[in-house]
Design a protein around this nucleic acid. Sequence first.
RNA 1: UCCAAGAGAUUCC
Length: 317
Amino acid sequence: SIAYSALLNGLCKAKRLVEARVLFEAMKVGDCKPNLVSYSVLIDCVCKNGEVGEGLSLLEEMEREGLCADVFVYSSLISAFCGKGDVEKGRELFDEMSRKNVSPNVVVYSCLMQGLSKSGRWREASDMVNEMMARGIRPDVVTYTLLADGLCKSGRVEEAVKVLDLMVKKGEEPNNLTYNVVVNGLCMDDRMDDALRIVERMVKKGKKPDLVTYNTLLKGLCGAGKVDEAVNLLRTLLSEKFHLKPDVFTFNNVIQGLCKEGRIRDAERIHSTMVEKGLVGNIVTYNFLIEGCLNAGKLVKALEIWKYAVDSGFSPN
RNA sequence: UCCAAGAGAUUCC
């Protein structure tokens, strides 16, 4: 059953859900019955595939089979419900799990916090941190990153910046994701200078800005009307000796910035560079370009791009 | 007894 579960996990992580289900059914009729981990893997998989209802059915099924769901199973389900904005169902599962004497851990709290933050309920999310500490569960770097992100996205960037100090005081070092969250918050708040100061701070702490950091800064620069600076930064990222490879987000951010200013020719040039680099763009790329053309009154060009996108295999959304 | 499988966070319309 352990080997089967490992294989099941591989299939699930590779998004080969059909084969995963076949394997799971084979386990049921064979000698190696699905165990707790098998159910955990499959539940997580169907949930990530958007089928949370089936996740719940599998939970019932495993209980009928005499298996007790553990904190892994519950965190997959809670994460799925919270992820789609249904915090109430997440809490219900949290209570159900408590009734069954399964103790929550830091991951379960993270899932709930994310759900609360997504619904703009940052105050409840930050209460969660206190609640978990009161229960002897130590917040980790993910907890603080979620807290900072929730605060940023509720327009409380200043408090998010303070989380960086708070967590250090509590013995947790911010990592790249934590810094990126705060940099993004500051960029969205049009505070590029402060965002750059956070980047400096992360470098001082020995963390290397990664592609997400740069993508975030590019978006921030464009949003602050510094599109040319964004283009220059993109050039740096594209240089041979630079250690990171720009991705579709990188290009899209700059393309969006140029399109917003009506600089369609420049946006197209950037798009060409992207294609030369072997990146095909995605539906968002083409939406930016088409929207830019339309706003600039370039209907023919917009249709050309539409056709190009469709011919490249994209379905207009 | 030991060893092996599973869950949470950041950037684009």
